Simulated assay, not measured.
Amino acid sequence: MSPSASTTASVPLIELDQAHVIRGQVRVLHGLSLAIAQGQHTALLGPNGCGKSSFIKLITRELYPLARADGQPPVQVLGQSRWQVDRLRNQLGIVSGDLEHSLADQHGLNALDAVISGFFASHVVPGHQKISPDMRQRALAALAQVGAQALAERPYAELSAGQQRRVLIARALVNQPQALLLDEPSTGLDVVARQQLLDALSQLARQGITLILVTHHIEEVIPEIERVLLMRGGHIVADGPRAQVLQDGPLSTAFDAPLHLYQHAGRLQVQVLPLSA
């Protein structure tokens, strides 16, 4: 990771201050206030419909918060409240299912070009843009970083779901972002592809790339993630070190079901207990 000279580690990566979001006629986020520091690997956990997707869209400027009466910005990324979307996405590498489908719909796009398209915040490489040798080398290096360099010339649409996901991560890495924002990254993956993805994320975290993982799968909280937030009904209901938050009580509250968390072969596992237990 190569932060710009103007960015200091003291500036939060993401800062929310009483951020409210309405979609349609429904308030989906209720006064969220939190700060995520640069270098602080963080997971946001919660059941389907709790507001996780709205949280991501708020950060990526697909949704906007209600204005505050005092005029203070409810959302700041790297100390700024106003961003051009393409510049923001260069700072926060986005990995989402929506992007995966958009790339798969591009006829003739190979994996290398899918990664190169990340330089232009586009789903294709614009015809009027010149691809420099440096861009090509950086794209190949990003593919190698996630163990996918051998896929470079293969059509993106013909890759397996796990391979596509690794290409998406490489695409996010070409701009040397401050962090990766991962939206349900293992959706649709089989057990082997899922573990390969989690291993790749662990390796990236150890390389110093900040991870913000948004998921409803507790098992995906890799050991490198030290902070966990639990969300329910558009509210943050728990926030703290993983050892404190990843406990039966807080998880059962967030998911509204009796859960038991344990480890097997060094990996987190979760069991849904009978309601009478």
Rank of each mutant, 00 (worst) to 15 (best):
L201H: 11
Q269D: 09
V146H: 04
P47C: 02
R242T: 12
P241N: 13
G208L: 12
A238K: 02
D239S: 06
L159R: 01
L198P: 10
A172Q: 05
D70W: 11
L261T: 08
I209D: 03
I116P: 04
Q178P: 01
F55I: 08
V228N: 01
A265L: 12
H30P: 02
N48Q: 08
L204T: 06
Y156V: 05
T60Q: 08
M1T: 12
P3N: 04
T7N: 08
L13Q: 01
L197M: 08
Q271A: 15
S53V: 09
A257T: 15
M1G: 13
A139V: 08
Q137V: 00
Q164S: 00
E219G: 07
F55C: 05
I218W: 04
S160P: 05
A67K: 12
N110F: 09
V270M: 07
A104W: 04
H260M: 13
V28L: 02
W83I: 03
A121D: 15
L261V: 15
H101A: 12
Y156L: 10
L78T: 08
Y262A: 06
L99C: 01
S252A: 00
I218P: 01
L151G: 07
A19E: 02
A111V: 07
R267A: 15
V174Q: 01
T7M: 12
Q263A: 13
A254G: 04
